[in-house]
Structure formats: C-alpha cells, structure tokens
Write a protein that binds this DNA or RNA. Structure first.
Length: 428
RNA sequence: GGAGAGAUGGCAGAGUGGUCGAAUGCACCGGUCUUGAAAACCGGCAUGGGUUUGUAGCCCAUCUAGGGUUCAAAUCCCUAUCUCUCCGCCA
C-alpha cells in the first residue's frame, strides 16, 4: 500500500509514476472521494467529541448527586445523527481503502522505464554455456528416460502441471534444496525457518496477494461470516514476511534475515497454454526463499546483496546465468525494484527465470504495520521488506539435468551436490 | 471430539457501568548522586487515525476480533478466534 499522503497531496505526480508501470489511477474519482472523506470524517469526529463531553458531564453530575435529566435531554437526537454519519463514513473509508489496496507500488527511480519484458535490461552475465558435440535433450526426455520424472502418473493422481519424481532424480531435487539452505544459513547469515503452508487472509493481504490476485491461489477453506479462509502459500515470502506483521522490531535486531524451504502452490490461472511441457510451470513446486527486513536506508544495498546470495547458488552449481533488472512495466505488484536471475537452458537455447529478487520498500510493511523502533526516534517507522528465490528448486533441477547431461543420457552430478547424494558422481 | 478456565500496555498484573488510555511492579530512556558502576532518589515512557506548515496543540479510535445494550463499556450480552487445564484420540 502506498503512503496515503501520496494519494491525497500528490495525486497527479503519483498517477504519472504509476503510469510508467501501466497502471491507470482514477484521479478524478479519488480526488472527489478524498474531499468527501475529509469533511465527513471531521464532522463525524466533532460530533463524537461533543457526545463524549456530554456523557462525561452526566457522570460528573451523578457523582455530585445532581439531577441529570436536563443534560440527558441535551443528548437527544445526537446519537441517531452520529450513528448515521458513522455508517456513511465507514462505507466511504472502505471504498477508499479498497482503492488503496489495489494500487501497485511506485517504481524506484533506478528501475528502467519500459512497457514489458522486452525492455528489461541485462546487467551482468556469469559463466559460459557449454558446447555440446551431440544433440541435447530437454529435461523431460532426460528425466523420463532415466525413470526419474513421471508426468503421466502425476496427471492420473491429480492433473496436469504436477510431477512425481523418483530415484536419484528425486534425491537430487532434495539435495538441491538442502544445499541451498545450508549455503544461505552458514555463509550468508540467514536463519532457517519452518513455516505454515496454509495462511489466512490477513497474511495474504499483508504481502499483497489479496485482494487482487486471489485467483492465482489455491484456497483450501473458504471464508465464512465468522472466520477467515485459508489458502496454500504461493511462496514462503508470505509466511516469512508476515512474521513481522503487527509488530515493532528493536533496531538492534535488524536486519532480520530468514530463509525457508517450502512447497509453493500456484493455480497459474492466467497461464494456460504457456510452458505446458515439463517442470517449468507447475501448480506445486519447491522453493528456497530469502526474506530480509531492513531499515529503509539499507534496503537498496540489501537488494544487491540478496540478489548476490541467490547468484552464488548458481555459481557454486556451475550454471551459467544472467541477471536482468526489470523495467517498470514488468515488475510485480508490490515491488519497487526487481532483479530477475535467468539460468541457461541449453535445450531451449535461452535463459529462463530461476529467481526473482525484489525490494518492496514499505509497500508490504505499511499493509502489515511491520515497524521498527530506533533508539533515538520517538515513534516507530515502517520497515523495508525484501524477498527473493534462492532458488526455485524444480527449475534448478531442470537446469542441472540439461546443463550436466552426457551423450548417453546420463547426468553428471555437480561437485557441490555429491556430498548430499552419498558421493554419487553420475545418474543413469 | 467432551468438560472447564481465561485473553488488559514490551513483560507481569490491578481494574465488574461514569474525570480509565487504564493503578502498581519489572524492563527501557533521561537526570541527580558517584572517580566509574551499582544502589537510592527524581522525571519520562502505548499504538493507529484526523486536523495542521508542523515529530507543537487539539480531536477520534483502540483493554483478542466482530456485533449488541446504554447518554456513557476494559467492565453487561451475543458470536468468532486463540491460550491453558482435565478426559478421549493420535505422528
């Protein structure tokens, strides 16, 4: 959520900045609603204040044993008038809040202006794609031939976009997650967390999946009049970041750095027909997530570092990649700045996204009221939140299978994974 | 799943209709004293929102959450959630 002040005092400038990401802010409507809100809120609160004063005087008069009937008469119609205003104000505030919750974050100045994916800017490359002197196979063919990827039975059990892994492939998938988790906890300073895979609506509102992107989620328990619904997490960013919701963190405890390995569930409602083959786009996939909570002045530097932590995984695995900075039109809803890391996939002869690292600045923390208190400060301030994949495990498996394939269809196990696989050097 | 008890500020814990946003203790911050520290003493110390040039003042809201009763609710009523105790079941 944006600072409400932007939507009140700097409406035009805010609208212009939002336009760079393709979001059209209804300036006229907002302006009118805001004007109405101001007068209504002031008059409602004034009315409330006068009633509070009268009620207080009734109490005082009673304490002295005086007759309260004349004062009671003064209250008269005040209550009804107040109730009516309160209802009107609540409806108006709800309308304004609904708008505010649907407005994406302002892009950071350093994000390149652009309309879509094609205008993202590559900022660095690492590694050299291996030259193969044979016809490369894609991960589907490799995995099926090795008996490690079973798409057919997954369809039987559940449906498309699910996978069954077996044998050494399943073991490598597990090894990858273990390796990533160990790297981030022992070398990068993150604290490992085990978190719920089902979260409530407040959490999803906090990180920005709701109210706008509910159709991308799997909802396991519908909301009722009494209670909130529960949904499967689309990323561990949701539980990890929401740990800080409604809390004030001591300055000395910053930065908070957390990591978790979890399955992620996405309905991929808007992607029918895209990446239908293979493991690239699944309804269920594993991911090791990195989350940082930092002071505002540190967040841009933290984004660089976090992105570096994710890149280190690829370097240690010896997988070529490139890092791009997303242009304004391609960034996610809550991000102020995003780096995507794209790994080289020889069978597709291209780079494919394997990590997305974003600085959300105070966009999420304002929704969550996640704050910190500086020793010298009188009031708490909003944190900046960052998150990134470090990395998507399934896609990393795809990259290892394709980049480490041999002519006979076997897979060489990357050095760093061998310790996690009982010393195994080759699959197949 | 059955029975009962509870939820108050960073923590502990008073408060059962009216100057209660809330006693007290601890923690924390500032000061006095001290060579320094501790102790003692003095003072300060919730959050969100509105108004405003204002981190000044004033106002509104908040005692788990949502409804209700009342001129007035931390306090009474209803519902939900969570916690604890006992029984049952279970990895």
């Amino acid at each position: 959520m944006l600072d409400p002040k932007f939507l009140r005092n700097e409406l035009e400038v805010t609208a212009e900045r939002l336009a760079t990401r393709g979001f059209i802010l209804d300036v006229d409507r907002l302006g009118k609603l805001e004007e109405k809100r101001k007068s209504l809120q002031v008059s409602t609160e004034e009315l409330q204040a006068s009633r509070n004063a009268i009620s207080k005087s009734i109490g005082q008069a009673k304490a002295k044993g005086e007759d309260v009937a004349p004062i009671m008469a003064k209250v008269g119609t005040l209550g009804a008038e107040l109730d009516a205003k309160k209802v009107e104000l609540a409806a108006l505030l709800e309308e304004l809040n609904a708008i505010a919750m649907s407005v994406p974050n302002l892009p950071d100045e350093s994000a390149p202006i652009g309309a879509d994916e094609s205008e993202n800017v590559e900022i660095r490359r690492w590694g050299t794609p291996k030259e193969f002197n044979f016809e490369v196979k894609d991960h589907v063919e490799l995995g099926e031939t090795l008996g490690g990827l079973d798409f057919k039975n997954a369809v039987k059990l559940t449906g498309s976009r699910f996978i069954i892994m077996k044998g050494q492939i399943a073991r490598m998938h597990r090894a990858l997650a273990q390796f990533m988790l160990d790297l981030h906890t022992t070398e990068h300073g993150y604290t490992e967390a085990y978190v719920p895979l089902l979260v409530n609506e407040d959490s999803l509102l906090g990180t920005g999946q709701l109210p706008k992107f509910g159709e991308d989620l799997f909802h396991t328990k519908p909301a009722t009049e009494e209670g909130q619904g529960l949904s499967l997490i689309p990323t561990a960013e949701v539980p990890l970041t929401n740990i800080a919701r409604d809390s004030i963190i001591d300055e000395d405890d910053l930065p908070v750095m957390m990591t978790a390995h979890t399955p992620c569930f996405r309905s991929e409602a808007g992607s029918y027909g895209r990446d239908t083959r293979g493991l690239i786009r699944q309804h269920q996939f594993d991911k090791v997530e990195l989350v940082q909570l930092v002071k505002p002045e540190d967040s841009m530097q933290a984004l660089e570092e976090l992105t570096g932590h994710a890149e280190t995984v690829l370097q240690k695995l010896g997988l070529p990649y490139r890092t791009v900075v997303l242009c304004t039109g391609d960034m996610g809803f809550g991000a102020a700045k995003t780096f995507d890391i794209e790994v080289w996939l020889p069978a597709q002869d291209t780079f494919r996204e394997i990590s997305s690292c974003s600085n959300m600045q105070d966009f999420q923390s304002r929704r969550m009221q996640a704050r910190f208190k500086a020793k010298s400060a009188k009031k708490p301030s909003l944190l900046h939140t960052l998150n990134g994949s470090g990395l998507a495990v399934g896609r990393t498996l795809v990259a290892v299978l394709e980049n480490y394939q041999n002519e006979d269809g076997s897979i060489t196990v990357p050095e760093v994974l061998r310790g996690y696989m009982g010393g195994l050097e080759t699959i197949g």
